[in-house]
Structure formats: structure tokens, C-alpha cells
């Protein structure tokens, strides 16, 4: 017998089914990469393809992290003559971490201070600056990659990780500043005034009251900046030309160049590239949604 609750329940079931399908579609490339990276070579091209490996192996990860390109060794005949991408994997990983953290640190420090100044002090043009800065972010980076490259040549910074740090600051700072500006505007000035009256100095007000209140904004801006820097390909491709200084995104492409594509290795590299960002997101998303600012003033 169909009760009153049948159709609402069916509706919920259909909704959850749809959500499951969408989630699976979104996650599929990642699942596939993970699955391939864990398969032995013999299983990678097996038909029919398997989503869950029959036997799992960590040899791809081992090869990447120890810098050994395994198919040359197992093949015997084609011993590697030059450097191989796997040898540089850890190096590129460290490079990526350095430029990502470096550019994010600069972007966050500058944008937080700039946003504080824009919202708390009165000077000419302070209301227009945030919008112009947002406009700057809307220009595709391909337009200013070459002028920037020429500047780096002048500064003798080409093929130097610093050039990437500055390049990423150029593309992340405008948006970070706009984001922080929007965030700082929502912090009521009364809580700063209350701290001033309580006896805090300007610096103490900023450190004890403004920064903790702005933390969710800082985290959001940091995540944005890290994702942009970590995932960038264009600047890494243009600014860097030695194998030693490549970042992960450009470096991993080298797995394709050659007569043989080692899919297991490539997929393991992709998974390792994704992991830091995934961990970052999981660790920080709590701060993004926390009910910040609530209760400071009449709620």
C-alpha cells in the first residue's frame, strides 16, 4: 500500500541518486588516476579495464619518490642515456611548494595590509582601487606573461624560482586584495574602537582583534592563491628553462615526451600532485564556513 510518506521518500531517494551520480562523475578522473597508479604494468592496458585493481602495487610511487625510472631498468635493452623525469620528481615537488608558499605569503601579507588601509583610512581613490584591482584579475594572464617575462629578463631572474613567485603574486594579489577588502569592510569598526579604548595600541588592535576576525577571509584568499600558483602551467613554461627549476605542472608533462609513456608513473605523479591541495582543503574548509563575525555586534 502506498502511504503518504511514499512519494516524499521517493523524491529524496531520487535526489540522493542524482547527487551520487554527479559526485561520481566529478571524482571519476581522480579515482581512475589513483586506480591506475596502483596497478602493475600488466593490468594497466588490460581489457576489459578494471576500476579496482586485481593486485595493487606501490612500485610507481616508489620509483617517483626514489627518482628511479623503472621501465628502463626492467626493459634491460634501452638503458637510459640522459636524465629521466622521475629523477626530478621530488625536486619539482619542492620547487612547486616553494613558489606556492612564497607567492601566497607575499600576496596575503600585502593584500591584508592593503585591504585594512583601504577600509580604515581616508585618502583619494580608496573606493576605486578595489574595483580596478578586480578588473586586473579579469585580464587573462596570457596577456601579461610576455611583458612580465621581459621584465624578468631585465631583472636577470629568468630560470629562477623568484620569477615564478613574482609572477604568481601578479596574478593572485589583485583578487586577494579585493577579497580581503570585501571581508574587512564587514568587520565593524566599533570592535576596533572598543579595543583602542580598552588600552590596545594600533598594532595590538590589528594583531589581536582585526587579524583573528579576518582569519576566514585570509584562509579563503590563501586557498585561492595556493590553487592558482600550484596549478599554473603558463608561467612555469615561459619563465623556467632548466630541468632543475621546473615546477610540477610543467615537469609532469615531460612524462609524455619520449617514445614511451609510462601511465602508471604519470598517474602516480598526478595523484601526488593532487594530495597537498586536497589535504589543505580538508584542513581549512572548517574555517571557511564557520560562523565568523557573528555575535560581535547585534545579531
Amino acid at each position: 500500500m502506498i502511504t503518504d510518506k511514499f512519494w516524499p521518500a521517493m523524491k529524496m531517494a531520487a535526489l540522493y541518486l542524482l547527487l551520487c551520480i554527479v559526485t561520481f562523475a566529478v571524482c571519476f578522473p581522480l579515482i581512475w588516476a589513483l586506480s591506475t597508479s596502483l596497478k602493475p604494468k600488466s593490468e594497466i592496458f588490460a581489457t576489459p579495464p578494471t576500476l579496482i585493481p586485481h593486485s595493487t602495487t606501490f612500485e610507481n610511487y616508489e620509483a617517483l619518490l626514489s627518482g628511479r625510472q623503472q621501465y628502463y631498468q626492467s626493459g634491460g635493452a634501452g638503458q637510459a642515456t640522459g636524465p629521466t623525469p622521475a629523477q626530478f620528481f621530488t625536486r619539482w615537488f619542492v620547487n612547486s611548494v616553494i613558489v606556492t608558499l612564497g607567492s601566497t605569503l607575499i600576496s596575503i601579507v600585502v593584500s591584508t595590509l592593503a585591504a585594512y588601509s583601504l577600509t580604515r583610512f581616508r585618502y583619494w581613490g580608496r573606493s576605486a582601487i578595489p574595483y580596478f584591482s578586480l578588473l586586473g584579475y579579469m585580464v587573462p594572464s596570457i596577456i601579461f606573461v610576455f611583458p612580465l617575462f621581459l621584465m624578468m629578463v631585465r631583472l636577470e631572474l629568468t630560470d629562477n624560482l623568484l620569477s615564478l613567485v613574482f609572477g604568481y603574486v601578479c596574478i593572485t594579489l589583485p583578487f586577494c586584495m579585493w577579497l580581503m577588502w570585501a571581508f574587512m569592510r564587514s568587520i565593524p569598526i566599533e570592535i576596533e574602537e572598543a579595543a583602542l579604548i580598552d588600552g590596545a595600541s594600533r598594532y595590538q588592535v590589528f594583531a589581536n582583534v582585526v587579524l583573528p576576525t579576518a582569519l576566514p577571509g585570509i584562509i579563503a584568499a590563501s586557498i585561492f592563491s595556493m590553487i592558482v600558483s600550484w596549478n599554473d602551467y603558463l608561467f612555469g613554461r615561459v619563465f623556467i628553462n632548466s630541468l632543475d627549476n621546473l615546477t610540477l605542472t610543467v615537469g609532469v608533462m615531460l612524462f609524455f615526451e619520449g617514445t614511451h609513456v609510462d601511465w602508471g608513473l604519470l598517474m602516480a605523479a598526478s595523484v601526488l600532485m593532487t594530495v597537498p591541495m586536497a589535504i589543505l582543503f580538508m584542513a581549512l574548509q572548517r574555517h571557511l564556513v564557520a560562523g565568523f563575525g557573528a555575535g560581535a555586534v547585534k545579531g
Binding site: 566599533e190 570592535i191 574602537e193 579604548i197 576576525t213 560581535a296 555586534v297 547585534k298
Partner: peptide, 13 residues
Amino acid sequence: IAMVFQSYALYPQ
């Protein structure tokens, strides 16, 4: 001095 604000202005965190 001490001041009580209309909006209370408590430190939210």
C-alpha cells in the same frame, strides 16, 4: 575611560 557601544562591539573570536 570605558565605553559601551550601541552594537556592543564584543570581540567575536
